[in-house]
C-alpha cells in the first residue's frame, strides 16, 4: 500500500476547496487518507497527477463517488429498526398525522428502502414524507434505481428476519439480470436530493432525522457543526438517530437532547 503524508492531504483538500465547492478539511484523517490512497491506486496516479486531474469537473464527480464510503446494508442493526417501528414512529404518530423523515447521507439507499418497507408494513407509507440526501449525485441515482447486487441480499434478508418483518424481503424485490430490483412503489414519494452536510443549509423541518455512520468520517469539530444543523432541522420533540457507536455527549447541543434509547443511539430534541 502506498503511503502519503499530511502535507499531501492538505494540498488535495485545499485544491478542492478553492476550485470546487466542497470542503474535506475536517474529514477524519485516517479514513480520508485510506480513501485517497485507494483512488491513487485505482486510477494509478501520483499525488501530483491527482491534483491536476481534480481540476476537471468530470473527474471530480468520480472522485466524490470514490471518496465517500458507500458500504451499507438494509436493516443494519435490526434491533434499531424494531425500536423505530415499535416505539419511535408510534410516539410521533401520537402528535402528528403526517410524518417527515430525513435520511442524511443516504448513500445507495438501503436505509431508505428499509424505512419504506417498515412504513408499508405499518400501513402508513403514504402518511410519511421522506427526503433522502447525499453529496454524491452518482450514488443518488443508484439509490433511486433501487437495484442491488444479489449477493448482498443474503445479508439484507438475514437482517430483515432479525427485524421481524411481517413478510419476507423477497416480497419487495424481483431478480432482473442478476440484480435485485426493489419495488419502485416503495420510494414513489421519496424525494432524493443532492445536499452536502458540510456546506449545505437547513432546508426543512423534520420529525425524525437519520444519520447513521456518516459523521464517523468527520472530525469532532465538523460533527459539532453538523449536529447543530440537525438540531435546527428538527421540530421540538423530534428524534435524531445516529450510528450505534456514535455519541452526542461531546457536542455543544448535547444538552438540547435527551437519550431515548442509548443502545440504539436515538435522541429526542427537548430544547430549541
Amino acid at each position: 500500500m502506498k503511503d502519503i503524508d499530511i502535507a499531501d492531504l492538505r494540498r488535495i483538500t485545499e485544491l478542492i476547496k478553492t476550485k470546487h465547492s466542497y470542503d474535506f478539511t475536517n474529514y477524519a484523517m485516517s479514513s480520508f487518507k485510506r480513501r485517497i490512497v485507494r483512488i491513487l491506486e485505482l486510477y494509478n496516479l501520483t499525488v501530483d497527477s491527482l491534483i491536476v486531474k481534480l481540476s476537471q469537473p468530470k473527474f471530480l464527480e468520480e472522485f466524490l463517488n470514490e471518496i465517500t464510503v458507500n458500504v451499507t446494508e438494509m436493516f443494519r442493526d435490526p434491533s434499531f429498526w424494531r425500536v423505530l417501528r415499535d416505539d419511535i414512529i408510534p410516539a410521533i404518530l401520537l402528535n402528528h398525522q403526517k410524518i417527515r423523515i430525513w435520511h442524511a447521507g443516504c448513500s445507495s439507499g438501503e436505509e431508505v428502502f428499509s424505512m419504506a418497507i417498515l412504513l408499508k408494513e405499518m400501513d402508513i407509507l403514504h402518511n410519511v414524507q421522506v427526503i433522502a440526501t447525499d453529496l454524491d449525485t452518482n450514488i443518488l441515482e443508484r439509490a433511486k434505481s433501487g437495484a442491488y447486487n444479489l449477493k448482498n441480499m443474503d445479508l439484507n434478508e438475514k437482517n430483515y428476519i432479525r427485524f421481524q418483518g411481517t413478510g419476507s424481503l423477497k416480497d419487495y424485490y424481483q431478480e432482473v439480470n442478476g440484480k435485485a430490483v426493489m419495488d419502485k412503489s416503495l420510494v414513489m414519494d421519496v424525494s432524493f436530493r443532492k445536499h452536502d452536510l458540510v456546506k449545505g443549509g437547513i432546508f426543512n423541518k423534520f420529525d425524525l432525522v437519520l444519520c447513521r455512520n456518516v459523521m464517523i468520517y468527520f472530525n469532532q469539530a465538523l460533527q459539532n457543526e453538523v449536529l447543530k444543523k440537525f438540531h435546527e432541522s428538527l421540530f421540538k420533540y423530534g428524534y435524531l438517530a445516529i450510528g450505534s457507536k456514535e455519541s452526542l455527549i461531546w457536542c455543544d447541543i448535547a444538552n438540547k437532547f435527551i437519550v431515548v434509547n442509548n443502545e440504539e443511539k436515538i435522541y429526542k430534541k427537548i430544547k430549541d
Binding site: 484523517m29 464517523i216 457507536k245
Partner: peptide
Amino acid sequence: APANYHLSIELGHYFSLSTEE
C-alpha cells in the same frame, strides 16, 4: 474493536470508526 466497524487510531490519540469495505 466493535462488530462490523474498522477501528482506527488518530494522531490526537483518539479512536475513529468506519464502515469501509
